[in-house]
Simulated scan of single mutants.
Amino acid sequence: MIRIPMHTAFDRLPVVDIAGLFSDDLDRRLAAARALDRSAREVGFFYVVGHGVPGSLRSALTAHARNFFALPYERKMQYYIGHSRAHRGYVPEGEEVFGQGARDRKEAFDTGLELPADDPAVARGTPMLGPNVWPEDLPGFREAVSRYYEAVIALGRVLFRGFALALGLAEDHFDTLLKRPPSQLRLVHYPHDTQASDQPGIGAHTDYECFTILFPTAPGLEVMNGEGQWIDAPPVDDAFVVNIGDMLEAWTGGAYVATSHRVRKVVEERYSFPLFFACDYETVVAPLPGYATPAALQAYPPLVAGEHLFRQTARTFTYLRRRVESGQLVLSDEAASTASFGQHARAAKSAGQD
């Protein structure tokens, strides 16, 4: 089995108490930041507690997600994501295609930062920015999802300040890059499947943004450790799962690794609510000065964060793939990065060289 550097052979995810990040005491913030840094370097995936997000928001989100996904297919398809100009709305089973062409066996509802059509970034046609799509015939849905989104976005900003401290930067270093981020919240439903066997439901992948804040309702998530083994990451009471994404890997020159993960098919019904915390679309990402070694600069050439996100999204969603194939959608060449993110990709590359 191939040994992947920079990750330990962990057999469970660490728990990081981030309550100190909310303190007025710099020493407490630094202590919490050091704990974040250690988990980001050694694992890349961890639980966070002490986050301050009320459980009532998670309960309301779950209840309204159940109500939406219980609707007839025809009703849900009225909000099909392919009708949206900002990549928002309902994602039916089979819409997403991962890895070797395997269709994903889940359904989802995608939301993001609510921006009006006359917002300058939207008016310029920036992908993945714009108004949300809402099922207005479901009372309370929009309010519950929006309240949750706002609370977890606020948590993400606090985490970003913690990462800045951990990396030896000014605490507000990333603040200016978070004005209109295409940070998506996905409501994901894995239906009850009595025929499910113990096998991957979503193939190994990394997340394209800076980091992800996940609230799951049932087991199924698996994380690859430094020995290439898959480790269960079951839900923990009152904790979020946080994982490093591609942009933080690039910024740190690989010191933080966008840990590969997958979802295993399980018999029980499962809901999953990842918020993919992104920086502004036009942000140019390259190794930070303290991490810009010759090897890091070669491995992580500059890339535009939003272009990387949109290119990867366009490779996954059927409606976007069709637009690319027809010439209706042309992806920027700037989006083509030579970096390989996550230890799964590195393992495959190493295996090919051996």
Score class of each variant (00 low, 15 high):
I244A: 10
T313C: 12
H205I: 02
Q298Y: 00
D246G: 08
G228W: 10
V304A: 00
V242N: 10
L309W: 06
D246H: 13
D238V: 01
A296R: 12
T252M: 12
G245P: 10
Y291W: 08
G290L: 02
E227L: 11
R270D: 04
V285A: 09
T212W: 11
T206Y: 15
R270K: 15
S272M: 04
V285L: 12
L275M: 08
F240I: 11
A299D: 12
G228D: 09
P234R: 02
H205G: 01
A204H: 03
G220V: 05
F240A: 06
A314H: 08
F240G: 00
D246C: 10
V284A: 06
H261W: 07
G254N: 01
D207L: 03
F215H: 10
M247Q: 14
L297P: 13
G290T: 11
P216E: 11
R311N: 08
V285S: 07
V242D: 11
T293W: 05
G226K: 06
R264E: 08
R315Y: 00
L309F: 13
F317W: 15
R264V: 07
V223N: 02
A305G: 09
Y281C: 05
G254P: 02
F276N: 00
S260L: 13
L275H: 07
L275N: 00
A204F: 01
A258W: 14
T313Q: 14
L288I: 08
P294R: 03
T283K: 15
H261P: 04
Q298T: 12
D207R: 08
G245K: 07
S272D: 01
I231M: 05
P301S: 02
A233W: 02
D207W: 04
V257F: 09
A305W: 10
V267C: 05
P274W: 03
D238E: 11
V267Q: 04
H261G: 05
P287W: 05
P294Y: 01
T293G: 14
G226N: 10
D246M: 14
H308T: 13
E222Q: 14
T206Q: 15
G203D: 15
Q312T: 15
R315T: 08
A286G: 08
E227D: 14
P216S: 15
E227G: 14
W251V: 01
T217F: 04
